[in-house]
């Protein structure tokens, strides 16, 4: 049941994208009970996720950027 801090951070990252399995999360939870450093990391990581959600980030698609680049280059 014991996992290393590296495994813990890996599970933590995956869980930010809902890609951690149930057992992984159980293992992570147990690890967080006794590992302060990972607990801190995990907290910050979830904060980052919620900030990204809140900020409503958007971006241009790859195609859009390619098109922009082509159009812009024509004007050089």
């Amino acid at each position: 049941m014991k996992i290393t801090c590296q495994e813990a951070s890996n599970i933590c990252n995956k869980s930010q994208y809902k890609e951690a399995s149930f057992w992984d999360i159980v293992k992570l939870r147990i690890h967080l009970l006794y590992c302060k450093a990972c607990k801190q990391y995990s907290k910050k990581n979830s904060e980052l996720t919620s900030m990204c959600d809140r900020a409503g980030l958007t971006m241009l698609s790859k195609d859009d950027k390619e098109r922009m680049k082509r159009d812009l280059e024509k004007k050089f």
């Binding site: 990204c52 900020a55 980030l57």
Partner: peptide, 9 residues
């Protein structure tokens, strides 16, 4: 949130 978005970018 708008400012946050720019800070993240």
């Amino acid at each position: 949130n708008e400012e946050l978005g720019l800070a993240i970018q």
